[in-house]
Amino acid sequence: MAIIKVVCGIIFKDDLVLICRRKPEKSLGGYWEFPGGKVEGSELYEESLLRELIEELNLKVEIKQHFFDTVHHYDKGAIELISFICSTSGTVVESTDHDQLEWVKVDDLLNWKLAPADIPIAKELIEKYSQIK
Rank of each mutant, 00 (worst) to 15 (best):
Leu53Met: 06
Gln65Thr: 07
Ala117Asp: 10
Val106Gln: 03
Arg51Met: 08
Thr70Cys: 08
Cys20Ser: 14
Pro120Glu: 01
Asn58Glu: 14
Arg22Ser: 08
Phe84Leu: 05
Glu80Lys: 15
Leu18Trp: 00
Leu110Pro: 07
Arg21Phe: 07
Leu81Phe: 08
Gly29His: 08
Tyr129Leu: 04
Lys128Leu: 12
Ser83Arg: 07
Trp112Asp: 04
Val39Cys: 13
Leu16Gln: 12
Gln65Asn: 13
Ile19Lys: 10
Leu53Pro: 03
Ser83Gln: 03
Ile11Trp: 05
Gly37Arg: 01
Gly30Leu: 05
Leu57Ala: 02
Phe84His: 12
Leu57Thr: 04
Leu109Asn: 06
Arg22Gly: 00
Ile11Gln: 05
Gly41Asn: 13
Asp69His: 05
Leu18Ser: 02
Cys8His: 05
Leu53Cys: 02
Ser89Arg: 15
Arg22Tyr: 13
Phe67Glu: 05
Val92Arg: 01
Pro24Tyr: 01
Lys128Glu: 15
Ala122Val: 08
Leu18Met: 09
Gly30Asp: 01
Ser27Glu: 10
Leu57Lys: 04
Val7Gly: 10
Val61Asn: 03
Ile11His: 03
Val17His: 02
Lys76Glu: 07
Phe34Glu: 07
Leu16Asp: 02
Ile119Lys: 14
Ile54Gly: 01
Glu46Asp: 06
Ile10Trp: 07
His73Glu: 14
Arg22Val: 04
Glu102Thr: 06
Tyr31Lys: 13
Lys38Asp: 06
Leu50Thr: 09
Ile82Asp: 04
Val6Leu: 11
Gly77Leu: 03
Asp108Asn: 14
Met1Leu: 09
Phe84Val: 00
Arg51Ser: 07
Val17Thr: 10
Ala115Gln: 06
Ile119Ala: 09
Ser87Gln: 12
Val7Asp: 06
Val6Phe: 10
Thr96Asp: 01
Leu53Asp: 06
Trp112Phe: 15
His98Asp: 09
Asp97Arg: 14
Ser95Cys: 09
Val6His: 13
Thr91Asn: 12
Ser95Glu: 01
Tyr45Ile: 00
Glu43Asp: 13
His72Glu: 08
Leu59Ile: 08
Leu28Thr: 08
Val39Asp: 13
Glu33Trp: 00
Tyr31Thr: 01
Thr96Ile: 11
Glu94Ser: 10
Asn111Leu: 14
Ile126Cys: 00
Gly90Ile: 11
Asp97Cys: 08
Glu124Ser: 07
Lys60Met: 04
Pro116Glu: 04
Ser95Val: 09
Gly37His: 05
Ser130Ile: 00
Gln100Asn: 12
Phe68Asp: 02
Asn58Met: 11
Ile119Ser: 12
Asp107Met: 09
Ile119Gln: 11
Leu28Ser: 06
Leu81Glu: 10
His66Phe: 11
Leu81Gly: 03
Glu80Ile: 06
Glu46Met: 09
Lys23Trp: 05
Glu46Ser: 06
Met1Thr: 09
Pro24Glu: 08
Pro120Ser: 04
Val71Thr: 15
Glu43Pro: 15
Pro35Val: 12
Asp75Asn: 12
Gly36Trp: 10
Ser87Met: 07
Val106Asp: 02
Glu40Val: 11
Tyr45Met: 05
Leu125Glu: 03
Thr96Trp: 00
